[in-house]
Nucleic acid binder design. Structure first.
Lengths: 313, 313
DNA sequence: CTGAAAGCGCTAACAT
DNA sequence: ATGTTAGCGCTTTCAG
């Protein structure tokens, strides 16, 4: 029989005589034959693979996204290529272009490059979906988190406990999330001490002395990792949380509820972001519209790392 | 000019007149031309992509491996496909086969399938490198951790503190690491209470009451995540660590040094495992031998979660 | 319903 | 040093 027939059978085309199809399948089984994925990709113009680009694979926030995306992609028989830009914009640009050339579409998680740069690349990178980032004027869908609302909830909670002087442990300057969270804090009208920090455990840990010296009664960390590092640093300094100082995080990564004390934080749907990203991307690849942009509203989880403000001297 | 010339230029072949090469490059630049990765893969028989298969993307241990591997692979201009088997053996088998068909090689991290099954698949999956697993009779290289030595170090440390009754919070039954760690514990001659648990935060957290009731003065957790969850659960029960009970982990994931109290654990080289996996795999793909198997010796990190055994009643 | 043939975009052996 | 030609392994019109 001809290869065309084999191809039809392997692709489940109905226009093959059942008897012949059975013979093909038997032969394939016997020879352990599997069509070449690469050749198929070339002929089809689709690879059945998409890429995820993240700034930092070490962040449990992105791991949640990765996981949700990975499972959703797998469920449709597709595969996922993962790249880490290491918080480096130039790297990010190169990776994105390269990744797009190998795969059918991209998920850009918290891209660090500036709006105009991303906009200029949009045609080359499409189809893609943006995570944790909105890009006015861009036709690609975006799934993001309402950082402002999340911060407002945290601030309201803190105000309710009598806090009037906050410290903010800032994340990467290039992070949109960081900028939005900071802006919301500035808009709160409370006294704010801004401390340059970073996104990791160690950054939070190292910031403890500065926090202690700031006079703030509550400290708002860029994310849970930082908050966790801070908790540890504060403990070493002999400061009690929340008696001496309240601490909040952001993201609700898996261990946030197990810290000592458990962390008050704004929870965001990490897996869901990954899953929805695939839904959008799959649609785009199929030539359909990507749907409406969505902004997930964070949920404030009040745990034990926050309490009444201590009297200031 | 002909496409062969273009191909030569794009691949940096020296046998092209400099002037012509320059023209080709200029044209490529002007047209924003980039050779098709897929067509290239088909012609070459190599995709420039390798796959990583892990049981659990949520485990920071594997994230360390992923990170090291990802960076090493990127540094050589290659790409990484990531799949999660979700601790499911059948899934793992299918994923591995599928992943291998799309890429030039595999890194199998802590595969859960049985030895004979893996051995039977070896030809089909090769080239690959095994992480956290040794497979007698298999020609593929293996990078693993000496779990026995690691546990012995932990036990010796605990014995030095007067502990004579340990509890073990067991990980997944299909995990080789779990089996080896447990075996080392059993061989210690100490009284051992074995508690079925699991590999995650919640598992450790949920085990706290059983630990409290076990009569053990020290509890050895399968890994750091479990230890961390346990720390939290113990705290809720009003038990102090290490005064009432000592706790140890395994792996030394990034936040282990920031827990309260900081976790005594056996450190293993996570990034290094990923990086070395690529070195081996790259060699294999190039037709060279994969080198000797190596077994990393864990390093005991004594922190504050362990101390003298309390008097037993 | 099946086979023949063209083509996906590139590389490599061969010829000039 | 460059062009010609033949694949890489599949899908897909187009005939029959």
């Amino acid at each position: 029989m001809s290869r065309a027939t084999v191809s039809r059978v392997m692709n489940g085309s109905a226009t093959v005589a059942p008897e012949l199809a059975a013979r093909v399948r038997a032969a394939a089984e016997a020879l352990d034959y599997q069509p070449s994925v690469v050749a198929r990709s070339l002929a089809l113009g689709r690879t059945g693979t998409v890429s995820l680009i993240v700034p930092d694979l070490g962040n449990p926030m992105f791991q949640g996204v990765l996981r949700g995306l990975s499972q959703a992609v797998s469920a449709d028989g597709c595969r996922l290529l993962v790249s880490e830009s290491a918080e480096n914009v130039e790297e990010e640009v190169v990776l994105a272009i390269e990744a797009r050339r190998r795969t059918d579409g991209l998920v850009l998680a918290s891209p660090r490059m500036a709006d105009d740069r991303l906009l200029a690349l949009a045609d080359k990178l499409a189809p893609f979906v943006l995570l944790h980032r909105e890009l006015p004027g861009c036709a690609m869908p975006s799934l993001s988190v309402d950082n402002t609302a999340g911060m407002e909830a945290i601030v309201a909670h803190l105000i309710g406990h009598g806090h009037r002087h906050l410290a903010y442990l800032a994340g990467p300057a290039a992070s949109t999330s960081n900028r939005e969270r900071l802006a919301a804090l500035r808009a709160s009208g409370l006294t704010l001490t801004e401390l340059a920090c970073g996104p990791r455990f160690d950054d939070g840990h190292a910031a403890a002395p500065r926090v202690a010296g700031s006079g703030a009664t509550a400290v708002v960390a860029f994310n849970d990792m930082v908050a966790f590092g801070l908790l540890s640093g504060l403990h070493e300094l002999g400061l009690r949380v929340p008696e001496d100082v309240s601490v909040t995080g952001f993201d609700d990564i898996p261990f946030a509820r197990f810290t000592n004390p458990p962390l008050t934080t704004a929870s965001i749907p990490k897996n869901e972001l990954g899953r929805q990203a695939w839904t959008r991307l799959r649609a785009l690849i199929g030539g359909e519209p990507g749907g409406y942009n969505v902004r997930y509203q964070p949920r404030l989880l009040v745990r034990e790392s926050t309490g009444p403000a201590r009297r200031t001297a």
